[in-house]
Simulated assay, not measured.
Amino acid sequence: MTDQLTVRCVLMRGGTSKGLYFHGADLPAPGAARDALLVRLMGSPDPLQIDGLGGSRPITSKLAIVAPSTRDDADVDYTFGQVDIDRAVVGYSGNCGNISAGVGPFAIDEGLVDAVEGVTPVRIHNTNTGAVMTAHVPVRDGKARVVGDFAVPGVPGTGAEIVMDWSGTVGAKTGALLPTGSPVDDITLENGSAVRATICDAANPCVWVPAADLGLDGSEVDFSETLLDVVREIRGKAAALFGLCTDWHRVDDESPGLPMVGLVAPPGDYCTLTGTTAEAGDMDLRVRLIFMNRLHESIAGTASVCLAAASRIPGSVVGPVATRRRTDTLLIGHPSGITPARVAAQEVGEPPHVSFELLGFSRTARRLMDGVVYYPRSVQ
């Protein structure tokens, strides 16, 4: 076709996200040319992404670039990209747990990793953070399994369970579990009020704030623009505290995806986005996660890891609102239901007074389409 060019692409669902998966060799080298191509493929900037493959929401405007690893301790290198919807920007400031869940099956099915019948461990080096995680991918007849009985709230039906171990990602972005050195920081807002926050870096940096500090119950599934502006201010001021932006007003430009902000509350009954009832007795706490200045429909995989870690930090704002039904699991109530995160922790004498033997979660993934995606020749 004279007006358009093509690039190989796989469209996959990973957890509660959906994204484009590429071989690194099929794309331009990192830089402006590659970003321009990725933005055009997704259809940004446009609220509907109508002229691209994006789905008009942050959870469907993601991508993964995968290649054989350059490290001895990893099988593949994986770069995560978050494509802005309203701006021609690709963010590489962190990782996505849901999209990460699709990297192992992609690597196996594309022949980047030799399949081992039963379960194939795939060591994934995330280039965004420098950390290595391991995906334990179920395999049948040399391909990643899709059919199974594991359910992920926010995803219709069930699938084959992929166990993700993120214990090697503590401090991956900032170098410390507690980037400010404190389990609680007071963040003063422009209106003079203050909120308590635990700023934690495990999988991805997140800011955890008691929902009650913002006058919320913790069961909300819709936030006003006024409240989202307050959360953006909290996010910006937290980001400035540990160097992700130079000024809190510039957080959307300098660090559009991170940190995420989660509003935490004790267990309570609420109606999910699908109309079912999430019962207090089935969860350890409630959380409402704000991602890319929008309420997340469920909870990001990396945020669930970070929340599990924060729940075990002595003195954090998360511990007092969380019950503990099982020592190695945190049951997280979010807008789409209840999701478990795995955490095995022990107290230690030195700050932050906790260490982790296990941090992770389980997800499902499914290849939806593969082939070539078209883009105008003028993008070159």
Rank of each mutant, 00 (worst) to 15 (best):
L63G: 04
A303V: 15
A67T: 14
A194M: 12
L216R: 14
G171V: 10
P267Q: 05
H136V: 05
E220V: 04
E297D: 15
D229K: 14
L37D: 01
L48T: 13
R40E: 12
D86H: 09
T274K: 08
T60S: 14
T277C: 04
L189F: 12
P138R: 00
K62Y: 11
A239N: 07
S193A: 10
R235T: 00
V7I: 13
F242E: 05
T180R: 07
G19W: 09
V90Y: 00
L48G: 11
D284K: 12
P138W: 00
C245H: 07
G337W: 02
V264I: 12
G257A: 14
R342M: 07
M164I: 12
A107Q: 07
V317E: 08
G319K: 11
G111A: 07
T134Q: 06
G275W: 02
R235F: 01
D269A: 07
L258H: 10
P340F: 13
E161I: 09
I299N: 02
P320T: 00
P335H: 02
L241K: 15
V163G: 03
D252T: 15
R140S: 03
V137E: 06
L258A: 10
G301V: 03
L228E: 05
L359P: 12
D247K: 06
G15E: 00
A29K: 13
V230S: 11
A64M: 15
D86Q: 11
I50K: 09
S93G: 15
S167G: 05
P259M: 09
R342P: 01
D185L: 03
E225Q: 09
G104A: 07
R71A: 07
G94L: 07
E233F: 05
L20T: 08
C271R: 14
R145N: 00
V373A: 06
R196C: 09
R312A: 13
T129S: 08
A310P: 04
A144D: 00
T70K: 11
C9H: 10
A239M: 06
G218A: 04
Q380H: 13
A308L: 12
L330G: 06
I313N: 12
G102P: 03
A309I: 07
A308K: 10
S182Y: 15
P210L: 03
L5Q: 12
A240D: 04
M283S: 06
H249V: 11
Y78L: 07
L189N: 09
G15C: 05
V170P: 06
Q4D: 12
G236Q: 09
R34I: 05
A115K: 01
V209C: 08
L63R: 01
R8E: 03
P352R: 09
G52Y: 04
V113L: 04
L358M: 15
E161K: 11
N126A: 03
R57S: 13
R57D: 11
V287L: 07
V348P: 03
T274A: 14
S100K: 03
A341H: 12
P138A: 02
E225Y: 10
V66H: 01
G52A: 05
L41I: 15
Y374F: 11
S304H: 08
R145T: 00
T329P: 09
